[in-house]
Design a protein around this nucleic acid. Structure first.
Length: 423
RNA sequence: GUGGCUGUAGCUCAGUUGGUUAGAGCGCCUGGUUGUGGUCCAGGAGGUCGUGGGUUCAAAUCCCAUCAGCCACCCCA
């Protein structure tokens, strides 16, 4: 291994990739703001307990994907804190919930937040799956009504639409019911699959004890045959759960948001209930989910806070960025080009003045006129401003339109106005 | 974590049954213009053949290990 390679599963965001990344994040932030979500940030690491308690001890994330470190300085401090372990956040809902409790935000419900930032999971990398990746997400905390689910989903749908991905994704929906319904269904499933345990795949036998709902989502052919005859969740939903889901669907219908019901859509994380949804795509191989979330009414109480309902989603920035059609163009600068020593000072001052006027200006650092124009061309400059003896004497600059090749002498006092007329 | 495929120049890739100084296109640099970019022409630089071992007179080529990427599973954004 070369120490000059990035750590496995991490990657640099070079300027071109960063522009795509920024487009995803900036567009999402703007749309989320339209729905009244306020951006906040939590630390990228938390006490390990924060994730263990909320994600469930049996989830894959907790059992094998967390980056956990000893927090102590190694100097044998006796303080409890020094003996604790900390974990790089594998997702951000737990962090927001923790902040909600420790920051006394319970006074401010409904709380609507947007976040964006890096997450860390120790998984085997693939395309669209890194060990450090980035998520955007929203959380709407404190609203028990299904209207909250509708707005959260609508916000996500609008973000995807703004990014031009409406046709690339499908909204899949399911309900996990309230805790009573879920428990009853789980019991029925375990009973059913236990009776057919010999026919189950090895993975699914494991799921039977850890997370039986997951069997419904199995890709194993034999499992699928069994699943076809398995009890249906719909038969175990109590009326409250059924009504709740119906209202969510009604809200989406009302907004004209298309969805597909997927009774096999389940959640890996324990804290979800009622609405579960995923925006999926068929363009990213096995990494089909680009935005996923649901309702988590039990999460905050589980963490030790007051009973507070919540609903939200998270979305993978790299996955969305990969789906963007075209490259994002960098802004086209104006190139300021001094010809000869005498023009240096003037060129620098004009460049600075234009920047204060809001123009993107590049000042070549060295080279003759030809060299500098070559560089201006390479950076896709819209125009070049030439400063030589003639121009200095006339208190003007030669404006060269680099698209048309046409030149004109422009007095400095009307330069900004002239440049603003360039297309 | 499991199984499979791949790794040659900055990028995309050739490289014959193991056989001299490992090639192409694009990109990069210089010149064709001491105040004019792109196109064109001429020339040039750039490679520990992922890394480390092994087999052989000889390894980019065969073998082993390792690292990384990709694909599928697991799981997930």
């Amino acid at each position: 291994m070369s120490s000059l390679q990035p750590v496995r599963g991490t990657h640099d965001l070079l300027p071109e990739a960063m522009r795509r990344h920024r487009k995803v994040v900036d567009s999402s932030r703007e749309v989320a703001a339209l729905y009244g979500f306020h951006e906040m940030a939590t630390p990228i690491f938390e006490f390990t307990e924060v994730f263990k308690r909320t994600l469930g001890d049996t989830s894959d994330i907790v059992t094998k994907e967390m980056y956990t470190f000893a927090m102590g300085s190694g100097k044998g401090s006796a303080k409890d804190e020094e003996n604790a372990t900390i974990t790089l956040r594998p997702e951000n809902t737990a962090g927001v919930a923790r902040a909600f409790i420790s920051g006394g935000l319970a006074q401010q419900v409904p709380l609507k937040v947007f976040y964006a930032g890096p997450m860390f999971r120790h998984e085997r990398p693939q395309k669209g799956r890194q060990r450090q990746f980035h998520q955007i997400g929203v959380e709407l905390i404190g609203v028990p009504q299904p209207l909250a689910d509708v707005e959260v989903i609508a916000c996500g749908a609008q973000i995807l639409e703004v990014l031009g991905l409406k046709d690339a994704v499908t909204l899949e929906l399911n309900t996990l019911g309230d805790p009573d319904s879920r428990a009853a269904y789980r019991e029925a499933l375990v009973a059913y699959f236990s009776a057919h345990v010999d026919a189950l795949s090895e993975d699914s036998r494991e799921r039977l004890t850890r997370n039986p709902l997951r069997i419904l989502d199995s890709k194993d052919a034999g499992d699928r045959e069994l699943v076809a005859g398995a009890p249906l969740f719909a038969d175990y939903l109590n009326s409250e759960s059924r009504d709740f889901f119906a209202e969510v669907l009604q809200g989406l219908d009302n907004l004209g948001i298309a969805y597909t019901l997927n009774p096999r859509l389940v959640r890996g994380l324990d804290y979800y209930c009622h609405t579960a949804f995923e925006f999926t795509t068929d363009r990213l191989g096995a990494q089909s989910a680009v935005m996923a979330g649901g309702r988590y009414d039990g999460l905050i109480k589980t963490m030790g806070g007051p009973q507070t309902p919540g609903v939200g989603w998270a979305s993978g920035v790299e996955r969305l960025a990969m789906l963007l059609e075209a490259d994002i163009a960098a802004p086209r600068p104006i190139a300021v080009v001094p010809v000869g020593e005498a023009a240096q000072a003037t060129a620098l001052k004009v460049a600075q003045g234009l920047r204060h006027a809001g123009f993107v200006v590049e000042l070549g650092y060295s080279g003759n006129l030809k060299k500098r124009l070559q560089r201006a061309n390479k950076m896709n400059a819209r125009a070049a401003l030439l400063f030589g003896d003639e121009e200095l004497a006339a208190d003007s600059t030669t404006l060269r339109d680099l698209d048309s090749g046409e030149q004109e002498l422009v007095p400095l006092n009307s330069l900004a106005e002239r440049l603003s007329r360039l297309s």
